[in-house]
Amino acid sequence: MTRTHRLFQLMQTLRTVPPPATAAALADALGVTPRTVYRDIDTLRGLGAVIDGAAGFGYTLIEDAALPPLSFDAEELEALVLGLREVQQVGDPALAEAAGAALSKMRARLPPGQAHRLQHAVLSAHRYAPMPEPGIDVRVLRQAAWDERTVRFDYCDVEGRATTRNVDPLSIVYMQASHCLLAWCHLRRAFRAFRLDRMDGLEVLETSFRPRRVPLLRECLAEMGSCPPSAPSRTASV
């Protein structure tokens, strides 16, 4: 780990751990010695970060010079907190972790009054029925969609039939009971929705479908929206 990367990781850890964070806890999180943490804290202070505390007492990030100033009104703060906490509840593991990190970054950069309001927001989100765990690494799937690369995976449908699919990934939809991939399926030659918890063995192929993702997604959503509620959609989960 380079020193620059270590300093970045130390700032991120200070944003996310409950304050005050002891040097021992920070050292354990970063895989370094407490003496290194003391030196890095001094370096961050020299770069403009306002970090309260001292050796033996723990450290609290008061003002984060790495982040731009933020200002929201009360309703905007509640909306942001609700949205990010909903992502923590329904997102895949990587997105849930990212939502928590985003909340921590906001709290570190907001004025004290707004930071207090964010931490103790009236609105929240909670789901008692956990979402099914994805069978694949969703970060890899998201990146393949951004890169407009065809992917291959093994799939088990609602009837228990196993197939291998090559698809062009268009969008991941976080539905009420499951996470689904909207895609153009090469096998069926049609749009399909695939539940992520029924996917396995994800592989990103060299085949590119750039620049067709956005128009294909529009067509897929239009097809879904034009289907009467009582009629089976061609985009239904398989």
Rank of each mutant, 00 (worst) to 15 (best):
residue 134 P to L: 13
residue 103 L to P: 00
residue 95 L to N: 09
residue 136 I to F: 00
residue 92 D to S: 10
residue 130 P to R: 13
residue 102 A to V: 06
residue 153 F to T: 06
residue 167 V to A: 13
residue 128 Y to F: 15
residue 119 Q to G: 10
residue 102 A to I: 03
residue 90 V to R: 06
residue 121 A to R: 02
residue 121 A to V: 06
residue 145 A to C: 05
residue 125 A to T: 00
residue 151 V to M: 06
residue 92 D to M: 02
residue 149 R to K: 13
residue 140 V to Q: 08
residue 123 L to N: 05
residue 120 H to L: 05
residue 140 V to T: 02
residue 95 L to F: 09
residue 157 D to W: 08
residue 92 D to C: 06
residue 142 R to H: 07
residue 112 P to M: 14
residue 142 R to E: 07
residue 105 K to H: 12
residue 139 R to A: 15
residue 90 V to W: 01
residue 94 A to R: 13
residue 160 G to D: 02
residue 103 L to E: 03
residue 107 R to F: 13
residue 163 T to R: 11
residue 110 L to F: 09
residue 105 K to I: 11
residue 133 E to L: 12
residue 102 A to K: 05
residue 150 T to W: 06
residue 156 C to N: 01
residue 148 E to S: 10
residue 133 E to A: 14
residue 164 T to A: 15
residue 164 T to L: 08
residue 102 A to R: 01
residue 103 L to C: 01
residue 155 Y to C: 07
residue 114 Q to S: 11
residue 125 A to E: 11
residue 124 S to D: 15
residue 115 A to S: 09
residue 112 P to V: 14
residue 134 P to R: 09
residue 157 D to S: 12
residue 162 A to E: 08
residue 125 A to Q: 00
residue 162 A to G: 05
residue 122 V to T: 08
residue 134 P to F: 14
residue 136 I to P: 00
residue 157 D to I: 09
residue 94 A to L: 15
residue 96 A to H: 02
residue 114 Q to H: 02
residue 107 R to N: 09
residue 112 P to G: 14
residue 126 H to I: 00
residue 142 R to N: 06
residue 113 G to E: 10
residue 144 A to R: 06
residue 154 D to K: 15
residue 85 R to F: 05
residue 146 W to I: 13
residue 166 N to R: 14
residue 99 A to I: 02
residue 114 Q to Y: 10
residue 86 E to N: 06
residue 163 T to C: 04
residue 120 H to D: 04
residue 146 W to G: 05
residue 114 Q to R: 01
residue 161 R to M: 11
residue 157 D to P: 13
residue 110 L to M: 03
residue 155 Y to H: 10
residue 135 G to E: 04
residue 149 R to Y: 11
residue 115 A to C: 07
residue 127 R to F: 11
residue 129 A to W: 09
residue 115 A to I: 14
residue 143 Q to W: 15
residue 154 D to V: 13
residue 113 G to D: 11
residue 144 A to M: 12
residue 159 E to Y: 12
residue 167 V to L: 05
residue 150 T to S: 04
residue 124 S to L: 01
residue 91 G to D: 02
residue 98 A to P: 01
residue 85 R to I: 04
residue 152 R to Q: 11
residue 117 R to I: 02
residue 107 R to K: 13
residue 103 L to I: 12
residue 158 V to W: 10
residue 102 A to N: 01
residue 149 R to M: 07
residue 115 A to Y: 07
residue 109 R to F: 05
residue 87 V to K: 03
residue 109 R to H: 03
residue 152 R to M: 05
residue 93 P to Q: 04
residue 107 R to I: 15
residue 161 R to Y: 10
residue 101 A to N: 05
residue 90 V to F: 00
residue 98 A to T: 06
residue 94 A to T: 05
residue 124 S to K: 00
residue 125 A to N: 06
residue 133 E to V: 14
residue 94 A to D: 09
residue 117 R to G: 01
residue 118 L to F: 11
residue 165 R to W: 05
residue 130 P to T: 11
residue 84 L to Q: 03
residue 93 P to R: 04
residue 126 H to S: 01
residue 135 G to W: 00
residue 135 G to L: 03
residue 107 R to W: 03
residue 167 V to T: 05
residue 105 K to C: 12
residue 153 F to L: 07
residue 101 A to E: 10
residue 100 G to N: 00
residue 133 E to H: 12
residue 96 A to W: 06
residue 121 A to E: 00
residue 112 P to S: 09
residue 164 T to Y: 14
residue 117 R to E: 07
residue 164 T to Q: 12
residue 114 Q to G: 05
residue 113 G to V: 15
residue 119 Q to I: 07
residue 83 G to A: 08
residue 158 V to G: 11
residue 139 R to P: 01
residue 115 A to N: 01
